[in-house]
Simulated scan of single mutants.
Amino acid sequence: MNKHNISTFLLTFYLYIFFFILLSNTSSGAHYQYESCVPKNCGHGPNVSFPFYVPGLQESYCGYPGYELTCEDKFPVLKLPENDYVVDDIFYENRSLRVYNAAVLRSEGKECPSRIRNTTFLPSQFDYVNSTPLHLVSSCREPLPDELTRYIVSCGSPEHGKNLTLALYDKDENLTNIAMEKCEENIVTPVEEYINKGMVSDLEGLLRKGFLMKWTAIDCSVCENSGGRCGFNPTSHLFRCFCRDRPHAVSCKPGKLLILV
């Protein structure tokens, strides 16, 4: 074999290898939106996927409008109009999540977390599950009645009423009969409901336990069960199922055709 034939053979061989690799990558590569919407983690806490998304880690089309999370100290945080909540766990199978007030995370071990704001409502995309209102009452006038001293949660002392914080459950008769008359500040925050509501011995522990919320975004299970990853088209305002080949309306598996005779 002369040099010309060898050169032609080698060129043909290399071109064959090049196109083989190119075609292999093309056939095996997944759609970019499918790849973009892989579940991500802030470092601690649950993996984040539809309807939630984390800007900087995921594209906005990987989630549903109003379900943006941010990473704070490696924890996922849900920012609502009145308070920020650390997402402790997400239960995708029943579309619920356990959260606790981010003031607990930011309090650095203080027994009375600051920056808890009044919680009067949730946005339309969320709803409470088995929670009860806890009243954190402060700025109380002296002297503090004996009936209220048992509600003190280790903030200040009875001699300095304005530094006191009292914790009372919503149905406690002393809340409306005495505390609301003696104290000026009243912050309401949800906590997990339980049958025997007595005095609060560990406020930080109670707040850290958090409570459950359900979300109202569209169900993702049909898409996920077909091997897809759920998302949202902000232009058409429609749910999308991102599959390895391309986006689909609902599922990666084509539905059965109904043949009318």
Rank of each mutant, 00 (worst) to 15 (best):
K3M: 09
I6W: 09
S7G: 03
T8E: 15
F13T: 11
Y14L: 04
Y16P: 00
I17W: 05
F18L: 03
F19S: 00
L23T: 01
L23G: 00
S27I: 08
A30G: 00
Y32G: 02
S36E: 14
C37F: 06
V38S: 08
N41R: 09
P46T: 05
V48Y: 10
V48C: 10
S49R: 07
V54Q: 06
Q58S: 09
E59T: 10
Y61D: 03
C62D: 01
C62S: 08
Y64Q: 04
Y67D: 07
L69P: 03
T70K: 00
T70G: 01
D73F: 10
K74P: 00
F75I: 04
L78Y: 01
L78M: 02
K79L: 01
L80N: 01
E82V: 00
N83T: 09
N83Y: 09
V86I: 06
V86S: 00
V87M: 05
D88H: 01
D89A: 07
I90C: 02
Y92W: 09
E93F: 03
L97H: 00
A102F: 03
R106S: 05
R106M: 10
E108F: 07
E108N: 09
E111N: 02
R115I: 06
N118Q: 12
T119R: 03
T120M: 08
T120Y: 09
T120N: 13
L122T: 14
L122K: 12
S124F: 11
V129A: 03
S131T: 15
P133S: 08
L134A: 06
H135F: 15
L136P: 02
S139N: 13
R141P: 02
E142P: 13
P143N: 14
P143C: 15
P145N: 08
D146F: 08
Y151N: 07
I152Q: 08
I152S: 08
I152E: 13
V153C: 03
N163P: 12
A167F: 03
D170R: 10
D170Q: 12
D170P: 07
K171Y: 14
T176I: 04
T176F: 13
I178L: 04
M180G: 07
K182Q: 13
C183V: 07
E184H: 04
E185I: 12
P190F: 15
E192F: 14
Y194E: 12
I195K: 04
K197Y: 02
S201C: 11
L203K: 05
R208N: 09
R208L: 14
G210A: 06
K214T: 10
K214I: 07
W215Y: 15
T216A: 13
I218V: 09
D219Q: 13
D219K: 13
D219N: 15
D219M: 06
V222S: 09
C223R: 11
E224V: 12
E224Q: 04
C230P: 06
N233F: 10
N233D: 15
P234W: 04
P234S: 05
P234Q: 02
L238Y: 12
L238K: 15
R240W: 08
P247R: 01
H248W: 08
H248K: 05
S251R: 11
C252F: 09
C252A: 07
K256M: 03
L257P: 00
L257N: 02
